[in-house]
Amino acid sequence: MTVNEVQDKIISEFSVFDDWMDKYDLLIDTGKNLPLIDPRYKTKDFLIEGCQSKVWLHPEFDGKKIKFSADSDAIITRGIVALLIQVLSDRTPEEIINSDLYFIDKIGLRQNLSPTRANGLLAMVRQMKLYAMAFAARRNEHKSSDIDKTETGK
């Protein structure tokens, strides 16, 4: 599924519920499927600043795609990270960098979940995009050094 297909799926799942409590129940359940971060990465280096609850996010890049794992000490925040990971994990850096995350507004996350400092939703998105940019840059460096090698080889 593309980034937008996953977003549309999430929007339709949340639209079933009118009551906010049900939406939160769904969010809590979503959090249970979060790909958990390896405990050894639960360090200051992987902590996202600007959240009232703690969020650790770890990226892994296999040269093509980035996979994220994460955790939070608050359950609702865990649900939010899990949604972001559903949308942005296992993607190429470009897919992540160019993604337009409209699902956040559509399911009401922005108004209803995010006095932005409190859950750091925007900080999480920014961090994911920063990782994507860093990996893309590193990959492109590798590519160009490969080309250099071939050229020298001639």
Partner: peptide
């Protein structure tokens, strides 16, 4: 977590501070 408590109370119309 205090944040979880605060968010759910908010949805019940109850304003508390967390943090």
């Amino acid at each position: 977590h205090q944040y979880d408590t605060g968010i759910i109370l908010d949805k019940m119309g109850i304003a508390v501070r967390t943090g």
